[in-house]
Computed example of a mutant assay.
Amino acid sequence: MADHPTADELARWARTAVRTPGDATLAVDGARPESADDGRVGLSEVEGFPAFRCRAGSGLAAAARAGAGAVLVVRASAALPSGMLVRVSGSLVVAAVEPGVPAAALEVRLVPLRVSVHAGEADAVGTEVPLSAYDRAEPVAADVRTVAAEVLAHSRACHGPDLLAWVVRRHGLAPEDVAAAELSSLDERGAVVSWVDVRGAHRTEVPFREPVGCPHALADALRTALDA
């Protein structure tokens, strides 16, 4: 971390980390560690709010309906100072949905009450970011290639089971026949999902509806393509 970063610099770093995380963990008050990411699809950022998509019947959705507290720890992207961590503490809420419309999936947001930037894992206290600076901050610019690399790394580290389930649904396979699946490539035009089953190795192209021009729209475009 810089010797004396300004509040605005800290806020930009924090917003960028939430928008393009290399890795992220969410701890929900009262939730067992093994169920903390129950039903969670992935992290995105909506106007400064960390946001997760999850099943409507998941433990995360129930925690959000109850207004539970949570702490998000984000490992920063390649665009930020090396080793930086960002902690966002706040309350979970369910994003507005249209009344009367069944929703198999919900968007859960974390309303920030405290944001802090840490030089690394050993920096337990960190430096607090004024919420006013965080709210107005513009994330550090990143290109599509950099963000794609971060999304790939996060997917491989955290979402292998989700992609395996997607392959099973997409291709009508028996779950026990699929050994593993991963996101093997990602760019502005789409992604490739690779998997191994009893017949060998395979890959499926997942094209986007149109090329992604904004790096920060890449994760949303990927989720939309996988949900199609």
Rank of each mutant, 00 (worst) to 15 (best):
A2I: 06
D3G: 05
P5M: 06
D8M: 06
E9I: 12
E9F: 11
L10C: 06
R12Y: 05
R15Y: 00
T16R: 09
T16Y: 00
V18I: 15
P21Q: 12
L26S: 07
V28D: 01
V28S: 01
A31N: 06
A31M: 13
G39K: 13
R40G: 09
G42T: 01
G42W: 01
L43T: 09
L43W: 04
P50V: 12
C54I: 07
C54F: 01
R55I: 01
G57C: 10
S58N: 04
G59A: 02
A63M: 03
R65Y: 00
A66T: 06
G69R: 14
L72N: 07
R75P: 04
A78K: 14
A79H: 13
L80E: 02
S82C: 11
G83T: 06
M84S: 14
V86D: 02
R87D: 06
R87T: 07
R87N: 04
V88W: 11
G90P: 04
L92E: 02
V93L: 13
V93S: 13
V93D: 08
V94N: 04
V94Y: 11
A95P: 11
V97K: 15
V101L: 08
A104D: 14
A105E: 12
L106D: 03
E107F: 05
E107H: 14
E107R: 15
L113N: 05
V115S: 02
H118Q: 13
H118S: 07
A119G: 07
E121T: 05
A122I: 02
A122K: 12
D123E: 02
G126L: 03
V129E: 01
P130Y: 00
L131H: 07
A137K: 05
A137H: 03
P139S: 07
A141C: 03
A142N: 03
T146L: 14
T146M: 12
T146K: 10
V147I: 00
V147Q: 06
V151M: 06
V151Y: 09
A153E: 05
A153T: 14
H154I: 01
H154T: 14
S155R: 13
C158N: 10
C158D: 04
P161M: 09
P161Q: 10
D162L: 15
W166C: 11
V168Q: 02
G172I: 10
L173T: 09
A174I: 10
P175C: 10
A179I: 00
L183I: 11
S184H: 09
S185P: 08
D187R: 04
R189Q: 12
G190T: 06
A191G: 09
V192A: 03
S194K: 09
S194L: 01
W195Q: 03
W195C: 03
V196P: 10
V196I: 13
D197L: 01
D197N: 13
A201G: 05
H202C: 00
V212R: 01
L218E: 05
A219F: 10
L222E: 01
L226E: 05
L226P: 01
D227S: 14
